[in-house]
């Protein structure tokens, strides 16, 4: 059972760019002789020297303040962000659950969007057709599934995306705080399905601010602070230190 793994070796992510559009105009102005505009570039180190190894069977929590790099780290693991320094090795099929609000074809029906999402998450077309009734059922969207999704409300998008994402067989599951899904009725159902789903992952990396969730799911937790790993260890210890350091100001 050692086939799945995530290894990060001295990984850094540096966001670089121009403060303004960074388009043709700035490029041209930059080339003009004589006239040098004020430096308008920015450079943010979102992750610095991150070293970690996650083995098959591990469930790892990620905690940290907003902007600490949790989402960036997950996107590196998902191979969405190529590291600007260091090395990343991921073995296993990745199932990212990052946002449920984007990545829809607005003029397509709900059903077609289920198919597209399924394909992009790694399902084969026959597999999707097989699971489609069950996914449709779970969304409780009924006849709305035949409507173009541009008619959907925010909550309906979440239902749809959530139902597809949780219907696959995850190997490496990367989750970025997605619990607040849907209305009361759906949230409860979603929670149960989510918990079952998280149990299935061979590897789980889970970014959350909900400490009770982290305690119940993850033995190990990583605390990110300003792009670096501040602490990496048993969940209870890490959470204790984290809470002690970041006492809410009243």
């Amino acid at each position: 059972m050692s086939e799945f793994a995530i290894e990060l070796d001295d990984v850094g992510i540096r966001f670089q760019g121009e403060r303004n559009s960074g388009g043709l105009k700035d490029w041209l102005i930059g080339r003009l002789p004589g006239r040098q505009p004020a430096p308008s570039t920015y450079c943010v180190d979102a992750l610095r020297h991150v070293n970690l190894k996650i083995k098959s069977g591990e469930r790892v929590g990620l905690i940290g303040l907003n902007g600490a790099g949790k989402s960036t780290l997950l996107k590196v693991m998902a191979k969405i962000y190529p590291p600007t320094s260091g090395r990343v090795v991921v073995r296993g099929h990745i199932c990212p659950m990052f946002e449920f609000a984007t990545g829809f074809e607005m003029n397509q029906s709900g059903r077609d969007n289920i198919r597209i999402r399924g394909l992009l998450l790694g399902m084969s077309p026959p597999e999707i057709e097989e699971k489609l009734p069950e996914i449709a059922e779970f969304t409780e969207l009924g006849e709305f599934l035949d409507y173009p999704v541009r008619t959907y409300s925010a909550g309906m998008f979440v239902r749809l995306a959530f139902a597809v994402s949780t219907s696959i067989n995850p190997e490496i599951l990367l989750i970025d705080e997605v619990m607040g899904a849907g209305d009361i009725k759906f949230a409860d159902k979603a929670k149960r399905r989510m918990y079952e789903f998280m149990e299935q992952g061979k590897i789980l990396v889970f970014a959350s601010h909900a400490q009770t969730l982290l305690e119940s799911f993850c033995k190990r937790t990583i605390w990110l602070d300003a792009g670096s790993i501040r602490m990496d260890g048993a969940t209870s210890e890490v959470l204790e230190c984290y809470s002690r350091t970041n006492v809410p100001t009243t």
Partner: peptide, 10 residues
């Protein structure tokens, strides 16, 4: 395709 690129691993 931004919505897809930033969300899926392919």
């Amino acid at each position: 395709s931004e919505g897809y690129i930033k969300q899926f691993s392919y």
